[in-house]
Amino acid sequence: MLNVGVIGLGVGERHANVYKNDVRCRLKGIHDFNHKKCENLKSKFPRVKIYRSDNEIINDENIDLISIASYDNYHFKQVINSLKKNKHVMVEKPICLYKEELDQIIEIKEKKKNIQLSSNLVLRANPKMVDVKKDIMLSSFGSIYYIEADYFWGRTSKLSGWRSKMDYYSIILGAAIHMIDLVIWMLGVKPISVYAIGNRIGSNTTDLKFNSFAVMLLKFSNGLIAKITGNGPCVHPHFHGIKVFGSKKTLIHNFHESFYFNKTKNKTNKVTLKKTKFKSDNKDKIITNFIDSILNPKINPIVTEQDIYNAMSVCLAAEESMNANRIVKIKY
């Protein structure tokens, strides 16, 4: 039985529900900087202790697993402190904001071989994305030469909240990281360089003083190009779009439909795919699998610590590229 503590009760409330409903776990405690949130959840989690600080919940020797869903700028400190206290850690993206922080996490985690670390990069559990990855692995696209992966965030009102109060908010680390991780996971290879640009035109009426839109061009060693966007202020439903272009087949997955184009002789055929919803149990799969990996060391997490480091390395190189206005070689 794993004793679990959850920090941050926005999306963290979903984390808490997963642990509460898993017979292998005991949801022992919750914490949020907004104590009213904790009080409001008392009726939902009547037997759960409310901790007054993140340090208090992390320092509790009876807790085995800390799930971190606080604001982005608190993740690094909470991850580091949890690892130092020998807690398994599930953290919402991003795990941190700067390269120096990532280096510290890697250094400490190297000393904690028996501790599991994962991040809730949920698109790996999306059935549609799983099917696309299978097709790629079966080489049904032929030679893939170009991919587009777009994160339509479309939640402009949230840009004036806690994100605007951070010393630095990154739309790449806060949104596009999902699409970066998705492309690396689908292809099974890492990009070698990145060029990124962005702007805040779409959010200039909000309190956010940082870029709310970014576009990245990733280059792979075989010449494949992937275009990734993090589109914060778009007038569009929240959605993750993807297009895969190969020598034999093309996939288009947009808000309205998903379909393939393939060729028979000189004719291009459209094959419409069945719509599949990204259901709650799929969204929770990253966390439930993480529990599996803690209880059974033979099971690997769907998102390993190396997967986190790879996606973060691309994001940080993209940030460097955007600031320097040049192509940056990605260091892993």
Rank of each mutant, 00 (worst) to 15 (best):
G230A: 14
G230D: 11
G230K: 13
N231R: 10
P233G: 10
P233H: 05
C234E: 14
C234Q: 13
C234F: 05
V235Y: 09
V235L: 05
H236C: 08
P237K: 13
P237L: 10
P237V: 11
P237R: 14
H238G: 07
H238F: 13
F239H: 15
F239M: 07
H240V: 04
G241S: 15
G241I: 02
I242Q: 03
I242T: 08
I242L: 14
K243E: 13
K243G: 07
F245T: 01
F245E: 03
G246W: 00
G246C: 04
G246M: 00
S247R: 00
K249Q: 09
K249F: 02
T250C: 05
I252M: 11
I252P: 10
H253L: 08
H253T: 00
F255L: 09
F255T: 05
E257D: 14
E257Y: 05
E257N: 12
E257P: 00
E257G: 02
S258W: 01
S258H: 00
F259W: 09
Y260G: 01
Y260S: 08
Y260L: 07
F261Q: 08
F261N: 00
N262F: 11
N262A: 02
N262D: 09
K263D: 04
K263Q: 13
K263P: 00
K263F: 01
T264R: 07
T264F: 13
K265S: 12
N266T: 07
K267C: 07
K267G: 02
T268H: 03
T268Q: 06
T268E: 09
N269R: 08
N269F: 06
K270Y: 02
K270M: 13
V271C: 01
V271P: 06
T272Q: 09
T272N: 08
L273E: 04
L273Y: 04
L273T: 00
K274M: 06
K274L: 10
K274A: 11
K274H: 08
K274Q: 10
K275C: 12
K275E: 15
K277N: 14
K277Y: 08
F278L: 07
F278A: 05
F278I: 11
K279W: 06
K279N: 15
K279S: 13
S280I: 11
D281N: 15
D281C: 09
D281K: 14
N282W: 09
K283W: 07
K283T: 11
K283C: 11
D284I: 04
D284W: 00
D284R: 08
K285C: 12
K285N: 12
K285T: 04
I286F: 10
I286N: 15
I287N: 08
T288L: 06
T288P: 03
T288I: 12
N289V: 02
N289E: 06
N289F: 02
N289Y: 04
F290M: 09
F290K: 05
F290W: 07
F290R: 03
F290D: 08
F290H: 04
